[in-house]
Amino acid sequence: MSSGLAYFITLVIVYILVVWGALIPFRAGLLYNGTVYVMAIGGYTAGFLSKTFGLNFWLCIIAAIITGLIFGFIPALGFARTNGIVTAISSMALIFIIQSIIKNIDFLGGTRGLRGIAKVPALPWFAIIILIIFGAFLYRLFNSRIGRAWEAIATDPQMAQTLGVDTRKMTVIALTLSSVFAAVGGAVFAFNIRVIYPGTFSFTFLLNVMTMLFVGGRFTQWGVIISAPLLWSINVYMPEAVQKLSNYIFAGLLIIVLMLRPEGLVTRKMILSVKNFFKGLFKKKARETV
């Protein structure tokens, strides 16, 4: 695998993880924009531990998961009491807050950034393993009692409460788990780019994440697997002239998709058809075997 392709694949996996992180709160009906904030924390945790203590990749990932849990849980306690636009705006503020904090921490490199993050030769393969593990976990999560509770909250919070769903608890769980995904994404990102700056985890990054989420499909976890490589390939593999227009292309696609296909490219109906197709295929084969 060429270095360029390895870099591309890993970056796409980072985006998928972070978009999954953004998808979880959406599933629970929350307009939460704090994924990039925890991504920065995960990235800096992994980068710092790798650089300063020489910890290996997997230990750094575990550390990122722990910090993700902590730094996701604390604001989640507050966000459990908010909703709608308040959640959206205040969670967005977390990005600016974390940028300012990191800029003023000397041992994290301040504005000069954190350099010297170790090289992980098998990074794309490790990233694929993480993707499979987290993908499977998310699939189970969405099809569990918690997942159904989130869906109930997203549909009608008051009705969900009436049915016995503890909406606050479910919100805290959603935001905490979302943060774990984002923190792991940040850690993989740090090992991929190997130098991180406070400015990297910016509003632009959030816009990329949201575009991938909305274009791919915000009701299933599968959409981003298509939208992330497709959209990011514009920034990497397109000719210079097209790359320069990537922001316009992203914005244009977002508008078109939201207007014509509000659920995104991959819809729940589409996933159901695919499931039924395979179910039918297997049933048919089973009948033939009998």
Partner: peptide
């Protein structure tokens, strides 16, 4: 049409790559 455009852009991208 959008899906085809995106897919073709990716394929063209790899060719350019």
């Amino acid at each position: 049409v959008i899906a085809v455009m995106m897919l073709s852009s990716l394929m063209a991208g790899f060719a350019f790559a």
